[in-house]
């Protein structure tokens, strides 16, 4: 799919490969159902967005309802890394390493303005990675400074829809190499 054809989030289902063998489509449906409903995040937060992520996991917002429940302390047990907060040049190699340690399939949510573009630290700064996509590939962007917990919930649901478009016939490929940081 071309970038220009992607109009809004509602066209996400167009990613889905239609047709095919009954066996494969059934297996796809089962695997995607399982994967999308138990997304385990990594306990990873650098700054303010981490507090909103905590709030999203707590009593009122409770994103356990959507299956994104068990915070894992080790990247080896996590499915999704929510990059909550600023990534600075010193942290970028660490983030890359965390991402590399996660097992496939792995997903990335860039939460907040800092993770998307450097946010309030974009101008006149010598220290901030201007967008976390320069280090690791990002699946879902959640704007805000910091985003509300509801926004994170919506982002997680978008990720689940994205997972459901996957197929084992055409497995998701991760780019092999990424430059550590552009503005080293």
């Amino acid at each position: 799919m071309k970038y220009e054809d992607f109009n809004d989030n509602e066209t996400l289902e167009l990613f889905k490969q239609t047709g095919g063998n009954l066996f494969f489509t059934t297996v796809d449906a089962i695997i995607n159902w399982g994967r999308s409903n138990s997304v385990w995040p990594l306990t990873f937060a650098t700054a303010c967005c981490g507090i909103e992520m905590m709030a999203a996991g707590a009593s009122r917002h409770d994103f356990a309802r959507f299956g994104i429940e068990v915070y894992r302390a080790s990247p080896r047990q996590a499915d999704v890394i929510v990059v909550a907060g600023t990534i600075v040049n010193k942290m970028a190699p660490v983030l890359k390493r965390l991402y590399d340690q996660m097992p496939e399939p792995k997903y990335v949510i860039a939460m907040g303005a800092c993770a998307i573009s450097g946010g309030p630290f974009y101008y006149n700064s010598y220290h901030v990675v201007k967008g976390v996509e320069k280090v690791i590939p990002v699946d879902v962007y959640i704007p805000g400074c910091p985003p509300r917990p509801e926004a994170l919930l919506y982002g997680v649901m978008q990720l689940q829809r994205k997972i459901q478009t996957e197929t084992i016939r055409n497995p998701r490929k991760q780019p092999d190499t990424f430059a550590d940081t552009d503005n080293k």
Binding site: V88, K90, S125, H127
Partner: peptide, 25 residues
């Protein structure tokens, strides 16, 4: 330094009203 965002240095190029928004963070 793993989250050094150079706020003090950035403040030297911001007005006093703008500094407030960085002290939040």
């Amino acid at each position: 330094g793993y989250i050094h965002r150079g706020i003090e240095k950035m403040c030297e190029r911001l007005t006093y009203q703008q500094i407030i928004h960085l002290t939040d963070r």
